[in-house]
Write a protein that binds this DNA or RNA. Structure first.
Lengths: 217, 217
DNA sequence: CGGTTCCTTGATAACGATCAAAGGCCGTGG
DNA sequence: CCACGGCCTTTGATCGTTATCAAGGAACCG
């Protein structure tokens, strides 16, 4: 998509850095100095309102981009970006990026693709929040994490190693940690999953799918 | 932003049409044949899940674009677009748009701006859903509609003429119509607003702002 | 170890959903 | 012009989910 010369300019301009678990990449309100691209690891974006209430609006996985919407909106960062685990991220400063966009506007289409994906996920999240009880939302999240974080065990069960805490999950789906904890334990009691800390085993994928299909609408 | 020649091509390709209230522009799942731009009027985008539950994900006001994220994602439309009132919309078919994007990738940046705005609004909506009770969300919505649909009356009160039904409002904030109705009447009883049908008068803007500031977090 | 953060569990309260029914408004058709 | 039907809104009663408050336990890290 990019001309080699432009790729080279971006490559020279980019700064790669490794963050520790819990480390902040940027803070809400900070002036936007450029965009980030997650190479490995995992990042949460949390927004806080004027009353101090906060919510995780998205998890950012490897290959995804971070802070670009604030760059294009020419405003400060709209949330806090925090690493959930040791994470490698490259930073592309504003000016070189502007130059690259100027010389090769095709690059804008690449960001547009990221934006449409993020928009679709934001819409889905909002829909799930509105239409499903917490238990079903947890089931949804586990299913979506399965693809990136699941491995198939000996007996065919799918083993997940969550990249985030259950507390983070509760902030994503807009519920209290206690509520999520109880919902998880209901799923365990029903024999759908097993969970020990952040290790989750999907015992019965069909039951997990049922959990979603038979949800109240 | 666009070269005159490209603008001209798009101008020739676009098809302007007027829709009646309640008329559909496209349906969820329909193949995406192009993008729409609202010139006047008002459109809701509603998504429905596999269980038949639905939610309005956004209202689209004049000057905003519709269906572009599905165009760039190269997939069917993700929701139903329905006019809330008599609405004039221009349609830009896929192929001419692709050609215009190819010849002038700057055009992509224009869509990127739309995308970042929609993304920010989607994040805010999801945050409000998660952090505020229905009454506060209604207050929020009235405030945001004030700028586009409000006029200042004789006594300084702000008069709103809602472009959507309260039922639509309930689908936007993810609540039942009954709950929204009750929430509105609480605001009326508190003297914050007056409402008769879709005509809303903001009696006391400060109280409305308080409603938001003192919300539970 | 000692502290912090995360998770769990219980009891209770608040909020919103649900069910049911009726009133108002509007457009259509007789 | 009026009557009818449909849709939106309102109101009440009750139920269910989730929030809240509180406290204890487990895991982890310095």
């Amino acid at each position: 998509m990019l001309e080699p010369r432009q790729l080279e300019i971006l490559d020279r301009a980019k700064i790669t850095k490794t963050y520790r678990e819990g480390e902040s990449i940027y803070h809400q309100g900070d002036p936007c100095l450029g965009v980030y691209c997650v190479e490995s690891g995992n990042v949460s974006v949390r927004m806080t309102n004027a009353q101090g209430g906060s919510k995780i609006v998205r998890f950012v996985h490897p290959g995804q981009t971070l802070g670009y919407s604030d760059f294009f909106a020419e405003r400060g960062y709209r949330g806090d970006a925090v690493c959930l685990e040791p994470t490698t991220i490259c930073f592309i400063p504003k000016e070189p990026l502007k130059a690259a966009l100027h010389h090769n506007p095709q690059l804008g289409l690449a960001f547009l693709n990221h934006a449409t994906i993020d928009l679709q996920e934001a819409d889905s999240l909002s829909m799930n929040q509105a239409l499903y009880p917490v238990r079903t939302q947890v089931a949804h999240l586990l299913l979506s994490l399965k693809d990136n974080y699941g491995t198939v065990g000996d007996d065919g069960a799918i083993e997940l190693s969550l990249p985030m805490t259950w507390q983070d999950v509760s902030e994503l789906i807009g519920a209290r940690p206690e509520t999520v904890s109880r919902a998880v334990h209901v799923l365990i009691d029903e024999g759908v999953i097993d969970a020990a800390g952040r290790k989750v085993t999907i015992r019965d994928l069909d039951m997990l799918l049922d959990e979603i299909e038979t949800a109240v609408s």
